[in-house]
Write a protein that binds this DNA or RNA. Sequence first.
DNA 1: GGAAGTACTATCCTTTAAGAAAGTGCCAAT
DNA 2: ATTGGCACTTTCTTAAAGGATAGTACTTCC
Lengths: 120, 120
Amino acid sequence: MGDTIAVEKISVDCKQHLRAINDTQDLLSGKWKVMIIGCLALGKKRYMELQRMVEGIGSKMLSKELQELEINGLITRTVQDTKPITVEYELTEYGRTLKPIIDAMALWGVQHRKKIITAK
Amino acid sequence: MGDTIAVEKISVDCKQHLRAINDTQDLLSGKWKVMIIGCLALGKKRYMELQRMVEGIGSKMLSKELQELEINGLITRTVQDTKPITVEYELTEYGRTLKPIIDAMALWGVQHRKKIITAK
DNA sequence: GGAAGTACTATCCTTTAAGAAAGTGCCAAT
DNA sequence: ATTGGCACTTTCTTAAAGGATAGTACTTCC
C-alpha cells in the first residue's frame, strides 16, 4: 500500500518535472530565441546590431522572435528619439533569470566542440 | 588602434558564444529530446516506459528521437534477453553532462508556472 | 488458437517553421 | 533630388517536423 503511494508520487513528480521542462522549451521555441537572449545577455542592443550579431537571421524572423520575447516579458523594447529613430532591446529582470540556462548551454556547446575536434 | 582590436575581440567572443549555444540547440533539437533526457536522468528506462512517461509522444517520434540521441553518443540502447525482449535506454556519461542544462530548464519552468499562476 | 504485450517500422498526410525578396515610412547627409 | 541607413511588415514559397494509422515479428498467457 505504502509502495503504491510512493510509486504514484514518483510518477507525479516526473510528470511535473517534464511539464516544467516543456514550459521552458515553449518560451524558448524557435530557431533564434536562445541566441537572441544570449546576445542580449551581453548588454542591450539595437535591432540592426542584433541582426548583424546573430548571423543568418532575416528581418522577418528577428522581428517575430523579438515580439514573442517581449510578449512573454523577457525583453523590453524602447524607442530612442535619436536622429534616425533607433530601437533598443534589453533583457528584463525576468529575462535575466534565464541566464543559468543560457550559460549552461553555451558552456556545454564550447566543450562539445572541443570534444568533436579532438576526436577527429 | 588598441580599441579596434578590443572591439574585434569582443565580437569574435560573441560569435563563439552564439555558435556554442547553437551547437547545443542542434543536438537537443526536436520537440521531445529534452524531455526524453529529463526522463532518462531519473534512471534507465524501457521503450514502453518512456512512451508512457512522455505524454503525447507517438512511437515514430520516440524511435526517431532515441536514434538521434544514440547517434550523438548521449544515450545507449541495450537489448535485454528477457521473456519478451525489452530494450533499455540509458544516459551515457557524456549524456549526463547535459544535466546542468536540463536541471536549469526544469527549475526555471517550475518557477515560471508559479509566477504565472500567482499573477492571475 | 486467439488476445495481448513489447519494440518497433512504414506510409501518408497535415501543419508549422523558416527563408527570400520586396516594399514601407521616416530622417539625414550629399 | 537622391541615396542610404534604420526598423520594420508583407507576401510567397519551400522544407522540415510532426501526427495518425496500420503493420511486422516475436512471445507468453489463457
